[in-house]
Amino acid sequence: MSTPLRVTRIGHACQLIEIGDIRVLTDPWFTQTAHYYHGEPISSTVQSLGHIDAVVVSHEHYDHCDLDALVDGGFDLEVPLIGPGTVAKIALDKGFRDVRAIEAWESAGVGDLTVTATPGQHGVHEVTFLIQHGGRTVFFGGDSLRVPELDTIPERFGHIDLAILPTNGLCVRPLHMRQVVMDAEQAAGLTAVLAPTMAVPHHYAFHSGQLGDRTITSGDQDPRHYADAVARLAPEVDVRLVLPGITVTVP
């Protein structure tokens, strides 16, 4: 019998991944500031998270690395926090006491859990992650662009049970519409290569406010574009569009 695998979308790229009795929090974001709006309800507070075995953080942007919210919410700073060196420095400065810095293709273990950094590309240094425990494998895409190295994951690691991918194709207007996040079509192409049992899109509801959306960022807020693209490119993959607070069980 397979180890139970569940994922609960808290909001944006903040996910609670449960593999058996191991609980992993990804890219925490619990607050809001000018130009950073969730665009959807947040389904949990820091205080209501319950026990967490590890936190993984893909990069230092506030909407993925809201460590102040964890500290202010009384989060246990002894919980291992795993991320690239840029994130590790911030975490240590915030008082986290078990910080594991890993870069692409490096791994960190927390008990029987293994977290492997995989390549990523964004506006700042970023890694993506493979999260493995009990014979289950989850790919977490943060808000990376699609980079060629990600296509080698199945060959390196075997079957992927769950892929969690960004889909909004975020572009930065002041940088001549520079794209910094994979879009729905690119995410679907990666999904076809990864061939997971299930795929969940995230990082699409975010917006920069009325002024910011006109002057700073541009992105696709409709995850159905990803679902439609996967239906064309990888119809065997079960795509779930998950509202915050909804828990999905992966077969």
Rank of each mutant, 00 (worst) to 15 (best):
G73F: 10
T152F: 11
H59R: 11
V87K: 09
V180I: 15
I153Q: 03
G135A: 03
A205I: 05
V181L: 11
F30T: 06
D76H: 08
F157E: 04
H12Q: 08
L70C: 08
Y226Q: 02
I131M: 04
T31V: 10
V99G: 10
L170M: 15
A227F: 13
Q221D: 04
E155A: 13
Q47K: 15
D76P: 12
T249N: 07
V24A: 02
K94Q: 09
V180P: 04
I153A: 03
I164P: 02
D151F: 09
K94G: 00
Q210I: 10
L67D: 00
S208Q: 09
E106R: 14
I160T: 13
V46H: 08
V200Q: 06
G141A: 07
A69E: 02
V79T: 14
I153K: 08
P28E: 00
P174G: 04
R232N: 06
L130K: 02
D151Y: 06
G212S: 07
S43T: 10
R178N: 05
Y204G: 10
L162W: 03
D53F: 06
V71C: 14
V200N: 05
D76E: 10
F129S: 00
F157L: 07
L241Y: 08
C171T: 15
G245D: 02
L49D: 10
K89H: 04
G123F: 05
V200W: 06
R23Y: 03
F139Y: 10
I246H: 12
Q179F: 04
G109L: 04
T118Q: 02
V46S: 09
G158W: 10
L241M: 05
L233D: 06
D220A: 05
S218A: 08
I153S: 03
L145F: 03
A192T: 09
G120H: 01
D76G: 07
D72E: 14
S208R: 09
V99S: 13
L67Q: 01
G158K: 12
S48E: 11
V56P: 07
V56Y: 01
D27Q: 14
P28V: 05
V55Q: 06
H38M: 15
P201W: 08
R136K: 15
R146L: 06
A88C: 13
H38E: 09
V230C: 06
M1Y: 06
E60S: 13
D213H: 00
H202P: 02
L77H: 15
A117T: 08
F157P: 02
L175A: 13
D143H: 12
R146G: 00
H64Y: 07
L241C: 07
V57L: 13
D53Q: 06
V147R: 01
T118G: 01
V138N: 01
G50V: 07
C65H: 04
N168A: 15
R173C: 00
A108G: 13
A229P: 05
S44Y: 02
I22M: 05
Q32H: 08
G109T: 14
A54I: 07
G169Y: 03
D63R: 09
A104I: 09
Y226E: 02
L67W: 00
A91Q: 09
G219K: 03
T167P: 03
A108T: 13
G209R: 11
P174W: 01
E106C: 12
A234K: 04
T3M: 14
S218H: 13
A101S: 14
A101Y: 02
Q15Y: 02
H207Y: 05
V172L: 14
L113D: 01
L170N: 06
L77Y: 10
